[in-house]
Amino acid sequence: MLPDSQDWSAVWLTLKLAATVTILLLCIGTPVAWWLARTRSRLRPVFSALVAMPLVLPPTVLGFYLLLLMGPHGPVGYLTQHLGLGLLPFSFTGLVVGSTLYSMPFVVQPVQNAIEAIGNRSLEVAATLRASPWDTFWSVIVPLARPGMLTGAILGFSHTVGEFGVVLMIGGNIPNKTQLVSVQIFNHVEAMEYAQAHWLAGGMVVFAFLVLVILYTLNPQALRK
């Protein structure tokens, strides 16, 4: 049996989520990585740990707390209701919030490594040429950190595509809204629709392989990290 319209909408929704999250993460993650790479604050280990938490926590833990925090009795839920945004669980926005937190280390860490590798010298040179910090950021840091940002973007995107636990906990499996490919595969397996499960699961295998080939072709250093 070929994939049906619900499968295709899950594919489209997954790509939309991954693209949204990747763009958001590049906007939020780059300043965070910059701060973590340059700061001498004693709080640095604390913030590094916070960013890296999703790497070691089961996604279900994150999903569970997000469900409680964003629900009608949670502080985030109170806030979003007061702002007239409604509640975030079971919505696309909720998935974006969850995935952004969950994929954060996959973007921040490569970017941070790249910024750390730039070292002080280029920045000192920029300073002697009277570049403002803003100018330095755009004309020195961003071009030099580009390989790291590319790695981060690709990893963040593919990691969001492959997300399951958080989505299962806060998504509610709604077609066209929160039903992603990973959840849809799970549904097909449970419903014993193995042919459709194969289409999607096989597609994911090919996708993951292609993404990694592209990553290592564009950015051979990633291999050595």
């Binding site: 469900l67 629900g71 009795h73 509640l87 669980p89 499996n173």
Partner: peptide, 14 residues
């Protein structure tokens, strides 16, 4: 995903 999760969505007020 199953009946216990359906209940948990309600119990948590979501």
């Amino acid at each position: 995903e199953n009946i216990t999760q359906a209940q948990q969505f309600i119990a948590s007020g979501n």
